[in-house]
C-alpha cells in the first residue's frame, strides 16, 4: 500500500475553524471521485474529531490542531487529527456512546458517529501530551484503487 498523495494543515483551536477543517479535507478527497454519501460521512467524522480536539484537547486555552491526510493506491483515505492538549485518561470510557464531560449540550455521540461513518477509528492519547485520532475510509470509486 503506497501513499499517492498527502497534505497537512494546522490551525488554531477556534470553533469557527471546524467548518474550514471538514471542508478542506473533503476538498482534498475530491480527486478520488467519492460519492456524495462518502463525502458526507468523512465531513461528519472530521467535524466530530476536530470538535473533540478543540473542546476536550484544549479546554482552557487555544492550541493548535493538526490534520494530516494520506491517500493510498488502494483508494483509502487515512486522516489523522492531532492535538497537543490535555489527553484522555480513559479512552474506552471516552468512546462510550452518550459519555460526555461537556456541559454545553454535546450529545456524547462523537466517537459513535466516527465509528459508524468511517471504516476504522483509532485513538492514541497520553495525558498531558495530547491525542491523535486516525480515521480511515475506503473510497470505492477511487481511480487509485483500480488496477
Amino acid at each position: 500500500m503506497n501513499i499517492v498523495n498527502s497534505m497537512k494543515l494546522s490551525f488554531i483551536s477556534k470553533s469557527a475553524n471546524e467548518s474550514f477543517a471538514r471542508s478542506a479535507v473533503a476538498a482534498f478527497l475530491l480527486p478520488l471521485d467519492p460519492t456524495v454519501a462518502e463525502i458526507a460521512d468523512v465531513k461528519t467524522a472530521v467535524s466530530e474529531a476536530v470538535t473533540n480536539a478543540i473542546v476536550h484537547g484544549y479546554p482552557d486555552a487555544f492550541g493548535t490542531v493538526y490534520i494530516e491526510v494520506n491517500l493510498t493506491d488502494s483508494g483509502k483515505a487515512v486522516i489523522k487529527i492531532r492535538d497537543k492538549g490535555v489527553g484522555i485518561p480513559d479512552i474506552e470510557q471516552a468512546m462510550e456512546p452518550l459519555y460526555t464531560t461537556s456541559t454545553d449540550e454535546r450529545a456524547g455521540l462523537g466517537f459513535a458517529v466516527m465509528q459508524s461513518f468511517m471504516d476504522s477509528v483509532k485513538v492514541r492519547s497520553t495525558v498531558g501530551k495530547g491525542t491523535t485520532v486516525t480515521l480511515e475510509k475506503n473510497i470505492i470509486r477511487s481511480p487509485y484503487g483500480k488496477k
Partner: peptide
C-alpha cells in the same frame, strides 16, 4: 446541508 452530533445535542436540549 450539514449536521454533526452538535445538531443532535441541539434537538435533545
Amino acid at each position: 446541508g450539514f449536521m454533526d452530533s452538535s445538531g443532535i445535542g441541539l434537538i435533545m436540549g
